[in-house]
Amino acid sequence: MGRKTIRSKQTDRLLAMMLKEPLTWHHGYALMKLTGLQSGTLYPVLLRLSDQGLLETLWREADKPGKPPRHVYRLTSAGLAFAREQVAPARRKPHETSAAKA
């Protein structure tokens, strides 16, 4: 099948959140708390974004001793561009648009 863009509310919510802090690495659990997405929804979205080169991943040592390393995520430059393109227009308020026109 063609790899056309199929957006979902969950993807948009995640992208919008990651767009707020584009340089920050996020843990899966933190992303769940920040977006309200359950792990069963969050991980498939993260996988898709990662497969499409929109998300970079890294193993990072845990803050607490004795805990295993954690996977962290942030948007790549392509991911940031995609998020700005997909999410930002939807968030822009009408008065911002008219102000921009003026």
Binding site: Y29, G40, T41, Y43, R70, H71
Partner: peptide, 21 residues
């Protein structure tokens, strides 16, 4: 990654929901 993340969740109820997801 999912497995390691579980160990960072202190609340057992949340951990169970996380694991189920």
């Amino acid at each position: 990654a999912m497995q390691n993340e579980l160990q960072a969740i202190d609340d057992d109820h949340v951990a169970l929901r996380w694991a189920f997801g």
